[in-house]
């Protein structure tokens, strides 16, 4: 892991990877969503509205995966003092928040025609909204810490503590009776028909690649800005 401690070595890999991930992810998302929107069958119970699955579920996974990555980067920063960890955490926060917001918005648009409501304070929805607030709080804290030229340690601790919300989201439909249905994809199998599962997995993989491309872009931007700031400090000294 410390092979990438040197930003120059990281950038050498990140530059070509950004384009590959970005175009690959975009193409995969386009194909999978076309499949989900046109070719995939409607649901026996929910009818056409089931097509919202192909954007809602990948967004939910990425919103949660984003915080998992943020927590992992926080751990690397606190324990191993990896120089890129704080940069990675800051690069993940905004895309993670965006996908969490997409999850909540599409979920609301899915809930109205199926459950008959835009929003209910059930365990799953509330814990997902908490995740969005955690992202907002983390972004504000990291920004405030950076302005006081801190090393991001407070944000890293927040990132680790906030990770307890992830199992709460996951188990919210199992621990508490909720309006949201239980999980459809588990370790032992799935309750989703193959004709619907494939566009879902394709879309999830495509959005994940796009997410990775966005994280790399933001890391490169942060590294470049850091370089400019260091140069300005040298000039001022």
């Amino acid at each position: 892991m410390h092979a990438f401690a040197n930003p120059a070595r990281f950038l050498k890999l990140a530059r070509p990877l950004t384009a590959w991930l970005g175009w690959g992810g975009g193409l995969l998302v386009a194909l999978a969503l076309l499949d989900g929107l046109v070719l995939a069958p409607r649901d026996y119970l929910q009818g056409e509205s089931v097509r919202i699955l192909y954007v809602h579920v990948p967004a939910a996974w990425l919103g949660m995966g984003g915080w998992a990555a943020l927590a992992a980067a926080s751990l690397m920063q606190l324990v191993w003092r990896h120089p890129l960890a704080a940069i990675a955490a800051r690069a993940v926060a905004v895309p993670g928040a965006v996908f969490t917001a997409i999850c909540l918005a599409t979920g609301s648009l899915w809930g109205r025609p199926t459950w008959g409501t835009w929003w209910q304070w059930d365990g799953r929805m509330t814990s997902m909204l908490v995740l969005l607030f955690l992202y907002a709080g983390w972004i504000a804290l990291a920004e405030a810490e950076r302005e006081r030229s801190g090393d991001g340690r407070l944000a890293a601790i927040f990132g680790l503590v906030g990770a307890v919300n992830l199992p709460v989201i996951h188990y919210s439909v199992l621990w508490w009776r909720s309006l949201h249905q239980g999980q459809s994809i588990g370790l032992t199998g799935t309750t989703i028909d193959p004709a619907m599962l494939w566009p879902l997995l394709g879309s999830a993989l495509g959005f994940t690649l796009l997410f990775a491309a966005v994280v790399l872009m933001r890391m490169r931007a942060l590294l470049a800005r850091q370089k400019v700031e260091a140069r300005l400090r040298r000039l001022a000294a």
Partner: peptide, 11 residues
């Protein structure tokens, strides 16, 4: 409110 289960399949 209607509550559906975790099964998704074609009709």
């Amino acid at each position: 409110l209607a509550k559906h289960d975790e099964n998704y399949r074609p009709p």
